[in-house]
Amino acid sequence: MILLIALATLVIGLAEGIPLGKQGQRKELVAMSCLLGMAFLLAAGFRIGFPSPITLLEQLFEPIGKAIFK
């Protein structure tokens, strides 16, 4: 899975990044790379046992939810 995500990161990065680079839209390129990096880090972090942000949310809010709902 992580391989597939890495591949996807690469392909999206190349497909979107090359035109941006050619037009000199640096800011867009940086923003896009940040998002891609985040995606990859999330996947990689999960691989080494890092919790995902949604799990964090869950730990934070689930007690409240369980208190309210059945």
Partner: peptide, 14 residues
């Protein structure tokens, strides 16, 4: 080119 690359990505799992 961009579309083709993404299509390839889409086809990988298949």
């Amino acid at each position: 080119m961009r579309k083709r690359a993404l299509m390839m990505l889409f086809l990988v799992p298949f």
